[in-house]
């Protein structure tokens, strides 16, 4: 049985960790880009960012004042038992958001779209967003948060099967060039591409691909993985680096997620997870203990299943699960 106050503590802690500590995979990725960057100004920007992350960790202060629209991704083990049920879980998430806004502090960005009403705690209509997923053969609950600036760097387009890979590449370039100028996308970014699904799911998949997969992770479909690397290369060949200055540092990694879509269409979305790629995950075990990590492990084989029945592959069965948890990476 998992108690509400444990969930609140975990949900609060991931808000603070995400705001302050840059994930290692992203840091390593950016350091690798500095070595390759020939543009002086772009390289200066990246070096300043590394200093900024060090300052954030040393001072325990947020790395970026735009702590975005705080939100949660929750993955619930099929055998997990939540005291008070899921209404209690959602209440714990809302309480943690309000407390983190005041205590971390996070910027109270959330306002009503028309009346600009501000509760000062990042709560409101449909806020924070909570996205749910499930995992078989598990009794834990994973709570992930992501802080991402909210104004620039994402776009959606309905393409058609006949537009092919050319259409995908054009829209990928269009989005990066449009938002890369003056660095509005806060690149180099983890670029997430959503392909397929219904229109709304195309946006959701692209956002999750950008925010919930780590630098270096590849799609299990070998041809999609190849396209990820090709798009990364394409983005870095634009000639634009950090802040839109001359350079090559645009895409630190590219992640594509696919969803089965309408036979006549190929909807596509592009999202850029910025120079402050902030994410943190807490795994709350059935005994109430909490383990923190920076890899959300969101896209599990179960998430990407295709048929009616779920047959666990060898690597994801019960026997292998504890090793995966303790190593903290998939």
């Amino acid at each position: 049985m998992i108690d509400e106050d444990i969930v609140e503590r975990a949900a609060f802690d991931v808000m603070a960790k995400a705001a302050i500590d840059i994930p290692d995979d992203y840091l390593t990725g950016i350091k690798g880009m500095i070595d390759l960057e020939k543009g002086d100004l772009s390289a200066f920007v990246l070096q300043s960012m590394v200093q900024n992350w060090e300052a954030a960790t040393e001072d325990r202060r947020p790395m970026c004042a735009d702590t975005g629209l705080p939100r949660y991704y929750v993955k619930v083990g099929n055998e997990a038992v939540m005291a008070g049920g899921f209404v209690a879980l959602e209440r714990a998430l809302r309480r943690a958001t309000a407390r983190a806004t005041h205590e971390v502090p996070l910027r109270p960005n959330r306002v009503h779209p028309l009346w600009r009403t501000d509760h000062g705690n990042n709560l409101g209509l449909n806020a924070p967003e909570v996205e749910w997923s499930f995992e078989p053969d598990a009794d834990w609950i994973d709570v992930t948060t992501v802080h991402k600036g909210g104004l620039f760097g994402s776009d959606y387009r309905m393409l058609f099967p006949g537009d092919g890979i050319d259409g995908i590449k054009r829209f990928f370039l269009d989005t990066l060039i449009a938002f890369g100028k003056r660095g509005l996308a806060c690149q180099p970014a983890i670029v997430g591409v959503g392909l397929g699904g219904s229109k709304d799911i195309s946006m959701v998949l692209g956002k999750q691909a950008a925010c919930l997969r780590t630098v270096g992770d590849r799609n299990p479909d070998a041809r999609v993985a190849e396209l990820e690397l090709e798009l990364k290369e394409l983005g870095n060949s634009i000639g634009m680096g950090a802040m839109g200055f001359i350079g090559s540092s645009m895409v630190v990694d590219c992640h594509i997620e696919c969803g089965y879509t309408h036979t006549g269409g190929m909807p596509m979305s592009v999202h850029t997870f910025c120079l402050s790629s902030r994410r943190a995950t807490a795994r709350i075990h059935a005994d109430g203990s909490i383990a923190y990590r920076t890899d959300p492990m969101w896209f599990t084989p179960y998430m990407r299943r295709e048929g009616v029945e779920w047959n666990a592959p060898q690597a994801a069965n019960k026997a292998a699960a504890p090793a995966r948890v303790s190593s903290g990476s998939a």
Binding site: A56, G183, S276
Partner: peptide, 14 residues
């Protein structure tokens, strides 16, 4: 004057 990054929130906060 433009800020750098973006953003060097912790350095500016300091």
């Amino acid at each position: 004057l433009t800020t750098v990054g973006y953003g060097t929130g912790a350095l500016l906060g300091r």
